[in-house]
Amino acid sequence: MSTAHTARPGTSAVRQTLPGTPPALPAGRTVRLGASRIAYEVKTYFRQGDSVFFTFLFPVVFLLIFSVAFGDQSFGKDADGNDVTAAQFYLPAMLSAGLLLSGMQNLAIDIATERSDGTLKRFGGTPLPVLSYFIGKFGQVFVTGLAQAILLLLVAGVAFGAKLPTEASAWGTFAWVFVLGVSTFAVLGIALSALPRSGKSATAVIIPIALILQFISGVYLNFSQLPEWLQNFASIFPLKWMAQGMRSVFLPSTYEGLEPGGAWNLGGVALVTGIWLVAGLIVCRFTFRWIRKDS
C-alpha cells in the first residue's frame, strides 16, 4: 500500500489506484528475447517439412538439375580460356533465388500463417516486444539463408567442380551483397505478410509473386537474353540486382560486358536494394499489427 496516487479532481470516478507500482521490465530484454526467438524460430523452421523443401532445398535442387541437364554445354569462357560450366553459371542465380525464398517467400507465408492460426494473437497478449519477434524472424532468415548459401557453394564447388573465387575482395562483395539481400528480403517478407487475407491463401498469393520475380530477374533465364523492356522492368525490383551482385562474384570478368550498361554496377546493387530495404522497414513500422483489430 505504498504509493496510492490521489485521483485528480475531474478525472473519472472509476479511475482506480492500485497498491504498489508495477515492476519495470528489465532493460535489454528486447535483445535477450530476440535471441531466444531466433533459437525458437530456427528450431521450428527445420521441423516444418514443407518450408525446408520449398524454401531451403528448392534452389539446391534446381542447381542440381541445371548442372546435370546442361552438364555438357559450355557457358562461355573465362579470361584464361577455360569453359564456364553450368554449375558455375547457375550458382549466383540460385544464391540470389535462395535469398528471395528464405527471406521474402518464407517470411511472408510464415507470418501470414501465424496471424491466421492465432500465434500472433497469443504473442499480442504477452509482454513479448514486437521488435524481439522481428529479431527472431530476421535471425531465422539469416541462419537458414547462410546455411543454404553454404550448401549451394558446396554443391557447386565440390560436386560439380565449379571454380569459386579465391580473392578476398570477391568474398567481401559476397558478404555485403548477402547481408544486404537477406535484410531486404526479410523486411519485404514481413511487409508482404499483411497481403494474404488468410493463412490458407498465403502460399497462393506469395509464391506467384516470388516465381514471376525469379523469371524476370535472371534467376532461371539468362538475364542478358531478355528483351530490354523486360530488363528495365525487372530493374525496379531488388532480385535483379541481387542476381547481378552475385554474378559479379562468381562469374569471370568476361561476363561483365553482358550486363546492362556493360558493367557489374555494384553501386546500383547497393542503391536499389537499399531503397527497398528502407521502404520495407517503413512499411513494417507502420503496418505491422499482432492482430487485425475488429475483424
Partner: peptide
C-alpha cells in the same frame, strides 16, 4: 508491455 506482464490470457480459440 509492463501491463501485459501482469496479465494472463487464455483465449477462446487457438490453432497453432
Amino acid at each position: 508491455l509492463a501491463w501485459k506482464a501482469r496479465l494472463g490470457m487464455v483465449l477462446q480459440s487457438t490453432g497453432e
